[in-house]
């Protein structure tokens, strides 16, 4: 069976989204969680470009993908800032340490 480009890209989309979701659930390290989030966004980007190539609207999907890349980078910056500050105040990257915020 010959897979089309769109079907091959969908395999990648499902794989990347699955790995990212698994990483979000299994991770306890804040930095690892951001890495998992980045992998999820890579899957979403691939889905956008694949949809563009399937519909013949590549320019529209490219302009949307650019917005996603910028938003994704800002999310990574904010997440790392949060992680570094948590490490400074609590001495660890462990998400369980954040339970100390509970009143």
């Amino acid at each position: 069976m010959q897979l089309s480009i769109w079907q091959m890209a969908l395999v990648g989309v499902i794989g990347l989204l699955g790995v990212g979701f698994y990483g979000l659930l299994i991770g306890r390290n804040l930095v690892k969680l951001i890495v998992a989030l980045q992998i999820l966004v890579k899957g979403a980007l691939l889905a956008l470009i694949a949809a563009g190539s399937a519909n013949g609207k590549m320019n529209l999907s490219q302009s949307l993908a650019m917005t996603v890349i910028v938003a994704d980078t800002v999310v990574a910056v904010m997440g790392m800032a949060l992680a570094v500050q948590v490490r400074r105040r609590l001495g660890t990257f462990d998400v369980k340490a954040l339970a100390s915020l509970r009143g």
Partner: peptide, 8 residues
């Protein structure tokens, strides 16, 4: 790049 989205 291979899918044709060169700018992105």
């Amino acid at each position: 790049y291979l899918m044709g989205a060169t700018q992105v």
